[in-house]
Design a protein around this nucleic acid. Structure first.
Length: 425
RNA sequence: GGAGAGAUGGCCGAGUGGUCGAAGGCGCACGCCUGGAAAGUGUGUAUACUCCAAAAGGGUAUCGAGGGUUCGAAUCCCUCUCUCUCCGCCA
């Protein structure tokens, strides 16, 4: 979330940013509400602190009087302090009420979009940041979508997943399973080669962790929740991996922190059906390799570019045609300041599939995480960034479709050492 | 799951109602000492909020978390979480 002081000092900028997220004049009233509550909080605190200071001083006096045997004097002060206590109790409850209200409002304010974020209300307004310059692959009339290819070559089975679990839980088999494992290993190797530390995190997280990266309270319905133990299944490795640095104070020399993690990802994605979401296009469980960086605020946008280049190089290696979009204000995630989406072209479906999302959260997550660094004068919030590198299910879909031949599916060269076969048939 | 013990600063560890944001040690930083180092020695070394135009300097809170008793809580009481030991179960 945003810091109140930031909102106070950059009010015009904040309002400008929220407008880009299509806040109406009515919605924007929240900003003044926040500032008013914060003013209120300050004045209550000043009053309360003074009261407590007096109480502490008098209490100390009582102690001294008691020790020197002046019981009567102590008794009279004691009565005075008892009154102070009641006053303080009232003020404390006003204080906590006020703090709760303020917190609730702050949770409702999304991150301020970066200057470069285009205006717009939906995904159709996203800007093509880097187009695909070469020709798009064309397949013959017999080309099959990946769900048909999966049946033909026994790569994955969604019906079997329904039997075992429910819809949207694919079962990968044989060479399909091996292909999956090859992609994971390839992506992890490339990430570690690029200097990211490999992490295997827990797949379930507690409430504090889910709150730290912003899944709570905004996206509660997206996560599977294990009620008995009060745990959430992770929707992305971003959640447990970034939270490694929750409540941490770094030194400037620690930057950049680069982490990567492979995990299955669980998403409820309630209420989406149709041709659009067939096959692997949208499932409840999929594998993803995530890259996370924690960086000095002055360098986070360079880091974002570095991460874009990393994801791009993976797609280049896999010989997949892709384009990069800069998300508009209306499509930008709640916690993000700037997000680039990578889309891969699926020749059989004749559409672009989102395979990666790379974002700079600036201080929005770190404020919740209390992730700071020392800069000589005091502590400041660090910047957090993350990106998929890459999400498997849709990459698999695109590779199956684009690389299909009458003999089988051609495995990209870079993956062959991992699969042990050149043709998936 | 059952029984017991415990949770104090970056780390170890003292502290059972007032003089405790907290002894002592380690670590770290800076200085002295030294040809240089080690040893020795001196000083400093949490976070958040807040007051002040700012600096300096005040104030408040924080001893796992939350609540309570009290004029006053690291210390007493309650609830929760976590850790350790033993037993049970188990990949």
């Amino acid at each position: 979330m945003l810091e109140v002081n930031y909102i106070r000092e950059n009010k015009e900028q904040v309002i400008h940013g929220l407008k880009k997220r299509n806040f109406t004049a009515g919605d924007l009233a929240i900003i003044d509400d926040i500032l008013r509550l914060d003013d209120n909080r300050k004045s209550i605190q000043t009053e309360l602190d003074a009261l407590l200071a007096e109480r502490n001083a008098l209490s100390k006096e009582i102690g001294q009087l008691m020790q020197s045997g002046k019981k009567d004097e102590a008794e009279s002060i004691r009565q005075k302090v008892a009154g102070l206590r009641d006053e303080a109790a009232v003020m404390e409850s006003r204080m906590s009420e006020n703090r709760e209200q303020l917190q609730t409002l702050l949770y409702k304010v999304p991150n301020i979009p970066n200057e470069s974020v285009p205006a717009g209300s939906s995904e159709t307004d996203n800007e093509v940041y880097k187009a695909w310059e070469k020709d798009l692959p064309e397949l013959s009339g017999e080309a099959l979508p990946h769900w048909d290819l999966a049946k033909k070559y026994n790569i994955f089975d969604l019906d079997l997943g329904v039997k075992i679990t429910g819809s949207g839980f694919p079962v990968y088999r044989g060479k399909g399973a091996r292909f999956q494992r090859a992609l994971i290993a390839f992506f992890l190797d490339r990430a570690t080669a690029a200097g990211y530390e490999e992490i295997i995190p827990p797949l379930m997280v507690n409430e504090d962790t889910a709150r730290g990266t912003g899944q709570l309270p905004d996206k509660e319905g997206q996560m599977y929740y294990v009620e008995k133990d009060d745990l959430y299944l992770i929707p992305t490795a971003e959640v447990p991996v970034t939270n490694i640095y929750r409540d941490v104070i770094l030194n400037e020399s620690d930057f950049p922190i680069k982490l990567t993690g492979y995990t299955p990802c669980f998403r409820r994605e309630a209420g989406s059906y149709g041709a659009h979401v067939r096959g692997l296009n949208r499932v409840h469980q999929f594998d993803k390799i995530e890259i996370v960086q924690i960086q000095h605020p002055d360098r986070s946008y360079d880091t974002l570019q570095e991460m874009l280049a990393h994801v791009g190089s993976l797609l280049d290696s896999l010989e997949l045609p892709y384009r990069i979009l800069r998300l508009c204000g209306g499509d930008l995630g709640f916690t993000s300041a700037l997000t680039f989406d990578f889309e891969v072209y699926s020749a059989a479906q004749k559409r672009w599939l989102e395979v990666s999302s790379v974002s700079n959260f600036e201080t929005y997550q770190s404020n919740r995480l209390k992730l700071r660094y020392r800069d000589g004068k005091g502590t400041r919030l660090a910047h957090t960034l993350n990106g998929s590198a890459l999400a498997l299910a849709r990459i698999v879909a695109a590779l199956l479709e684009n690389n299909q031949t009458p003999e089988g599916i051609v495995i990209p060269k870079v993956l062959q050492p991992y699969t042990g076969f050149e043709l998936l048939n």
